[in-house]
Design a binder for these strands. Structure first.
Lengths: 233, 233
DNA sequence: CTTACAGTTCGATGATAGTCGAACATTCAC
DNA sequence: GTGAATGTTCGACTATCATCGAACTGTAAG
């Protein structure tokens, strides 16, 4: 027989830095340690210490891809516990209107390390699957014959990126949406190209990106994607 | 838009002494400060400090009767948050045989704030679903026409409890069974009635409850529930 | 091989906060 | 009134732990 130990879990959540990381992960994505360190505004050493404790405590799960360590919430129950805690937490006054704007922008489109994520990232990946440019293979995506032509036409040289030892096109799981977006070398190459042809541009001071008018038209013409006009000016 | 402050609440729960007090109060009763101090094995001064912080943080409510100060959980939401945290907490090894006995009793039947939980609570809820007395609706339960008759016959007046602002019949995740049991106003009313007709009685000194012989027969006759004979003497 | 980068481990430091002794406030019993 | 019991406030001590600098282990890139 065993009695659960609520103190350990609660004290893990009850730290400013760790809570900041958990709130980031509550979106559902798995994030590398460095990004979580940045989110919590602490040094990598401190973040590493916190992450190890949360894995030990059963709050987080860790997956290693190359030299990166991706962390995600260990289970749906953890996410629910965080939400429930939020529901009884006394509201904290907003610091600024800018924060709200930034939050919207982040949900819409952002970079996840070096590839595109958010609503745009997920929609893009979904459309590529729908048009059979790519196909799901285990935990990765594979490029179809169809897709090879498309990527070439789009300006992404598959030969260049197939050579590296990095994962070719990893699936990046999004919990809240329960959908994947494309990561890995191909995801990075596509995102790089999106910046190159200026369909997207970085919003200074964060991970958020903005879809340009060019991008709106391009996504529509090349892939049949209709994006809401939020943050596209 | 206000961002809730999860850190404060979690750090309040994440202390050994405070958690011990909260676990006591999870039984649903209001307790005086001295008793909570005893439960947490700290001096009255220390307990007073903790209690003040938890009231300030919105976890507890205080009522003064003469020279006594009674403390209780501030709301059903707080109780649910505690139960949810329990469900993700890693099991802690038991220290003594007595704890093992208490743990068994807790797993079998206990009060969760003001409604019945544990194996009995989950089985009761399951059976009500099976007999279509209630039905799942989102994260709540709804009473069917069938059920309305049954509850009335059982001695629970649905009109009385439907009026309040409180959730009518919330689904509450059970940490020991990892399944849902019925909470909210209806759960409280049913449990209150169970005490009234003495199908269950409190085991002194904790949250655990005991199913009486009357209760055993009643559960069998009224709902077709066969409970193991544990703790029913 | 060399350089760069991601992440961890170790050790020292500093601040937060839990704890209790002492004293005070309040209420009840006599 | 006096005395006892409940509970709180104040101050000091102490232990825990978050934090960061420095050094180290891998992995990727050229």
């Amino acid at each position: 027989m065993a009695t659960p130990n609520i103190v350990e879990v609660a004290s893990l959540i009850g730290d400013t830095s760790r809570a900041a990381m958990l709130m980031c992960l509550l979106g559902g994505k798995a994030l590398p340690a460095s990004e979580l360190a940045r989110a919590a505004r602490v040094t990598p050493q401190t973040a590493s210490s916190h992450l190890a404790k949360m894995v030990e405590g059963g709050l987080l799960a860790q997956e290693a891809y190359g030299r990166y360590r991706y962390y995600r919430l260990a289970s749906a129950e953890v996410a629910q516990a965080l939400e429930t805690l939020n529901s009884i937490a006394p509201p904290k006054p907003v610091r600024s209107l800018r924060e709200s704007e930034q939050s919207k922008a982040l949900h819409f489109a952002r970079t996840c390390y070096d590839h595109i994520a958010g609503e745009v990232g997920v929609t893009l990946t979904d459309k590529m699957l729908e048009l059979t440019l790519i196909a799901e293979v285990d935990r990765d995506f594979a490029v179809t014959d169809n897709g090879a032509k498309w990527f070439s036409n789009f300006g992404v040289n598959l030969n260049d990126i197939g050579r590296g030892r990095r994962h070719f096109a990893r699936q990046c799981l999004d919990w809240s949406e329960r959908r994947h977006h494309m990561a890995g070398a191909l995801g990075a190459a596509v995102t790089c190209r999106l910046f190159e042809i200026e369909w997207i541009v970085r919003i200074p001071g964060g991970r958020a990106v903005r879809v340009t008018h060019n991008g709106l038209r391009g996504f529509k013409q090349e892939l049949g994607i209709s994006l809401a006009s939020i943050n596209t000016t």
